[in-house]
Simulated scan of single mutants.
Amino acid sequence: MSANGPGLLIIERILRDRGSIWQQIVEERDLNRLTGQMLASSAVALALYGAVLGFFNSGLMALTSAIKLPLLFLVTLAICLPTLYLFNLVFGARLSMKQSVSLVMVAITVTAMLAVAFAPISLFFLITAPDYGFFKLLNVSILALSALVGLRFLTGGMRVLHERGLLSPARTEPALVAEAAPISPAPVNEEEKVPAAVGAPTANGDGAAVPAAAPAHPVLVAGARPGERVWDPIAGRYAKMPAGVATERPASMTLLYVWILLFGFVGTQLAWTLRPFFGNPDSSFALFREIEGNFYAEIFRTIAGL
């Protein structure tokens, strides 16, 4: 699909050709248009799904839920964005504000489109089994599942950006290595051997050249996984990373966890503040409820009442 295709079909490009999306974000190319397309498609999808949620109470609730659900995701992004960008700088990542917004919008768009794909199922249970507690838990589960899939896309995007060096501090010298425990040498293939430095071999009693002994503390490439074959420049050979040796966690994963936690806490509390989305059929229409308790306590009460 063309990068200039209709905005509402951007989800097809994300699902079929996500590599081009990541490449566009990496190159910071035409991100205003890309973000606008994702914003339009996710807003429409969330509005449709919100309307299904609100129909459990009334047509008026369906209308307000169609407005509230897109607001929930987009206002959460607006609240979290300054903090997300600050953590981006703290962890040494080099993402611009546009790249950060585009990356998060990919996850929101996938979440919104998957949620609207579940809308017929939600509507089916609304018609055939109109139980308020069950309907509420069903749709919370749908949104949670959709969000998990969206986070998988976010994880994939973070990995690509990490590979391109956008989640690591800028370096002006070769990658640094850190001292660690000795690495057990792995069997060396013929093609992995390199010529020894001049003067490195020593002579034994028969006059044959013998390689110099490897140092007691070779170096460990930061970020290598246990069992991975890495080049040891001191020993002059490839070696396997030993198990049980702690290595530096990639900044991309730490940054991802911070983003997820921040979005989760802000989003759930904002959802609780904007409620009702469903609307108890035994209660009259209300645009907002009084702020009391929190989202997690209500979920536990609903499960206990089933």
Rank of each mutant, 00 (worst) to 15 (best):
V194T: 15
V194P: 04
P195E: 07
A196H: 15
A196I: 12
A196D: 12
A197R: 01
V198R: 12
G199D: 06
A200S: 11
A200T: 02
P201K: 13
T202I: 12
A203R: 09
A203L: 13
A203T: 04
N204W: 00
G205E: 14
G205V: 11
D206G: 11
G207R: 04
G207T: 01
G207A: 00
A208G: 07
A208C: 13
A209C: 01
A209F: 10
V210C: 00
V210R: 01
V210T: 03
A212E: 09
A214F: 00
A214W: 10
P215E: 02
P215W: 01
P215T: 12
A216Y: 09
A216T: 03
P218V: 04
P218F: 05
P218Y: 06
P218D: 03
V219D: 08
L220G: 13
L220A: 14
L220V: 10
L220Y: 06
V221W: 04
V221M: 13
V221I: 12
V221K: 11
V221F: 05
A222M: 04
G223C: 03
G223W: 02
A224Q: 04
A224C: 12
A224N: 07
R225I: 13
P226S: 07
G227H: 07
E228F: 04
E228W: 03
R229P: 01
V230P: 02
V230Y: 07
W231E: 05
P233I: 01
P233N: 05
P233H: 06
I234A: 15
R237M: 08
Y238R: 13
Y238F: 10
M241L: 14
M241A: 06
P242T: 09
A243E: 15
G244A: 08
G244S: 08
V245A: 07
A246N: 09
A246T: 06
T247S: 06
T247D: 09
R249G: 01
R249A: 13
A251Y: 04
S252I: 02
S252D: 14
S252P: 00
M253E: 14
M253F: 14
T254Y: 03
L256H: 10
Y257I: 11
Y257C: 08
Y257F: 14
V258M: 01
V258P: 02
W259F: 15
W259A: 10
F263A: 14
G264T: 13
F265R: 07
F265M: 11
V266T: 04
V266K: 00
T268M: 14
T268N: 07
A271Y: 09
A271I: 10
A271F: 08
W272P: 00
W272A: 05
W272N: 10
T273F: 14
L274Y: 11
L274E: 02
R275S: 00
R275Y: 06
R275L: 03
F277G: 00
G279S: 02
G279P: 03
N280I: 03
N280H: 05
N280R: 03
D282A: 15
D282Q: 12
D282W: 07
S283A: 15
S284Y: 09
S284N: 08
S284P: 12
F285A: 05
A286W: 02
A286Y: 05
A286M: 06
L287D: 03
F288L: 03
F288M: 12
R289L: 14
R289Y: 11
R289S: 11
I291Q: 10
I291R: 13
E292T: 12
G293W: 00
N294F: 04
N294V: 07
Y296P: 00
I299M: 05
F300S: 11
R301M: 06
R301D: 01
T302W: 09
T302S: 03
